[in-house]
Simulated assay, not measured.
Amino acid sequence: MKIRPAKHIYTRAGRFLFAAMLVLLPIATVLTDKISAFDYVRLPNRSLTIGDTTPAATTSYVFSWQYPTATTLGSIKLLLCTDPYVLDTCTLTSGDFSAATLTGQSGVTGFSILSQSAGEIILSRAPSGGSNIQSTYSFANIDNPGGLPDVFYVRIWTYPTADATGPPNEISSVATATTEVINITTIVPPILFFCTGLTVDNYCQNVVGNQIDYGDLSSTSTDFATSQFGVATNAVSGYVVTINGNTMTSGNKAITALNAPAAAAVGVGQFGLNLRANTAPPVGQDTTGAGTGVVDANYNNPDQYQFNDGDLVANAATGTLFNTFTSSYIVNVPPDQPAGVYSTTIVYICTASF
């Protein structure tokens, strides 16, 4: 009996499966060899701080990250892209690294710019051991992407070589964004607080009186009285205060004004004032308040009195908080002073220089 060899019978489905296996096996091999970003070590604690997030602004960039290991480090590549996918082709933004300067570094240091273009900076140093510490790299003169505010990314590679070639040590990316500016405007108006009275309080909240009555004058004693004025301003060049008016008169009769600083002298015709605390006679007080106003030199001597129409009596060189000034008036008359009702009107004028 002849035994026939068994026939190889393939169903149509079997042929299909076999063919499919022939096709799929090479594909499986390709997928197994594909490099993924997960195959690389990443840089932890990454950040990018931008000095000005306005679109197209020229500003500072400060990169910071921690090296995960102390492996040999020779170069760093920074790439300005529209997406963070470090192994994909980079689509450059309209930002510009080409004029950037390296202004500072800390942690793992010794880098300088090896090369740069609009979208790329390579930092280089002599390859040497690194350190797993937080490190910072600061740049100036980087142009943000222009146009509408948007998110953009900087991809980061570190290499053991000095020229950013060969397999990298770590790969990562950081995200940041340009933003709309917030414009805030306001107006600070010119401000002047100025008041006069027998007494004034802080910032002229309460002003009392405007009349001084000496009663009967005597040739054997000095009559005295006080009034006050207060000033504060935001004028950049400060202010001046002048005293304006005449000596005391009764018709065509007058009490002599002190045209230069002089002490009070009983029995001599005198009308004058100063802005100090005095002992002869005991009248007045020194300037008070937190401001920087000062008394003019001619009216700043205790027990010395003067009066001239238009004299400067106080000033401040710049804007100042509130000061209260006390004017101390004295009147003396000789025994032969003609009788009469003597009076005067004193006007203080404050001029602020805005």
Rank of each mutant, 00 (worst) to 15 (best):
N183T: 14
P189R: 14
N234C: 04
T11K: 12
N244A: 04
Y214T: 06
N278M: 02
Y214W: 10
Y203H: 10
F18P: 00
T82P: 00
A280V: 03
D33H: 06
P190V: 05
A100K: 04
P44M: 05
K2C: 02
A177V: 09
L22R: 09
A314I: 03
V154G: 01
T53S: 11
S47L: 04
S115R: 13
V41F: 07
D296K: 09
Y299T: 00
T54G: 08
Q105I: 03
A164T: 09
G130Y: 08
Q66F: 00
T287G: 07
A277F: 11
G95F: 14
Y67L: 15
T233G: 03
D303N: 14
F354M: 09
G251H: 06
T247K: 08
V23R: 09
L48I: 15
F194E: 00
Q228T: 11
T256W: 03
I122F: 09
V333P: 03
T91S: 11
A140L: 02
T186R: 09
S60K: 12
T11M: 10
T72L: 12
V240Y: 02
L87T: 04
Q306R: 15
T165M: 10
I171P: 09
A57L: 06
V62H: 03
G293F: 09
S172P: 07
A100N: 07
T320E: 01
T91E: 10
G269N: 15
A6M: 07
D33L: 14
V347W: 00
P55W: 14
R15A: 05
M1W: 02
T29S: 08
A28Q: 00
T136W: 04
F18R: 13
M248F: 11
D39F: 04
D213P: 00
S98L: 01
R4F: 11
L217G: 10
T344N: 15
V62T: 15
S219I: 06
S328K: 07
N202M: 02
S106E: 12
L24I: 13
L321S: 14
N206E: 07
P160K: 13
V181G: 12
T53F: 06
V108W: 08
K253I: 07
S227E: 10
R46H: 01
L217D: 08
N259L: 13
